[in-house]
């Protein structure tokens, strides 16, 4: 039995690290389509984690959230984003405000901070998933970081949903997920916000003929 716990816990660890890697790829890569694929992959890893937790803990509502997140995050949102990308026809890679190596180093620093600051908390956690909290926190912070450094509006959507992934993962790892109704609300929220932002992106492109959010400064006048 204990052997099985360890294996399960290690499997979750590995999935968590995969999610972290995908988040770093999100910072590292400049191609929008790759970013969306990466997002889909990370969401898939996240659903695997929640599926594992569901089967392990036997809490039924986690199955439901798993199913919804599979449908929503792995299929619907990436599909919608691909649709937008195709529609507004972006050829150019996206630009960052800071250069590649430096942003990676900063990302590394952020991860370090996340690991360091959760040191004291995770001592009291259950041993089963205690390594996940720092990673969840890192993913959330990195999502934020992506929103800061990227110029294009779509990347900001990606950053936002990355943050949401991190939150979801944190909730899973600390308390086996939130109550079902809250989760449903969150899913709904994230879907609506993605759609709204998608429409905005489309509008921005229409009126400014660019996706560079720096141009939004012009709205000030």
């Amino acid at each position: 039995m204990t052997q099985q716990i360890i294996v399960n816990s290690r499997a979750i660890d590995i999935l968590a690290v995969l999610m972290l890697i995908t988040t770093i790829i999100l910072i590292g890569t400049s191609r929008l389509k790759t970013c969306i694929w990466v997002y889909a992959f990370r969401s898939f890893a996240l659903t695997l984690v929640s599926g594992l937790i569901a089967s392990f803990s036997g809490i039924h509502h986690i199955y439901i959230t798993t199913a919804i997140s599979l449908a929503l995050k792995v299929i619907v949102i990436p599909g919608f984003l691909f649709h937008i990308v195709r529609k507004i026809n972006i050829k150019k890679g996206q630009e960052s405000l800071i250069n590649y190596t430096f942003s990676l180093l900063l990302a590394c620093g952020i991860i370090l901070i996340a690991f360091y600051s959760t040191q004291n908390v995770i001592q009291f956690e259950n041993t089963f998933m205690r390594h996940c909290l720092p990673i969840a926190l890192s993913i959330t912070l990195l999502g934020f970081f992506v929103m800061i450094i990227r110029k294009q509006a779509i990347a900001q959507i990606l950053g936002l949903i990355t943050m949401e992934d991190g939150m979801f993962f944190a909730a899973l790892s600390t308390s086996y997920g939130m109550p079902l109704i809250v989760e449903l609300g969150l899913f709904f929220d994230i879907m609506v916000s993605v759609i709204i932002m998608g429409i905005y992106v489309y509008r921005i492109k229409e009126s400014f003929n660019t996706l560079d959010t720096d141009f939004l400064k012009e709205l000030k006048e």
Partner: peptide, 10 residues
């Protein structure tokens, strides 16, 4: 079990 280790994956 050691091999099932996120740090080895990285």
């Amino acid at each position: 079990i050691l091999l099932l280790n996120p740090s080895l994956l990285l």
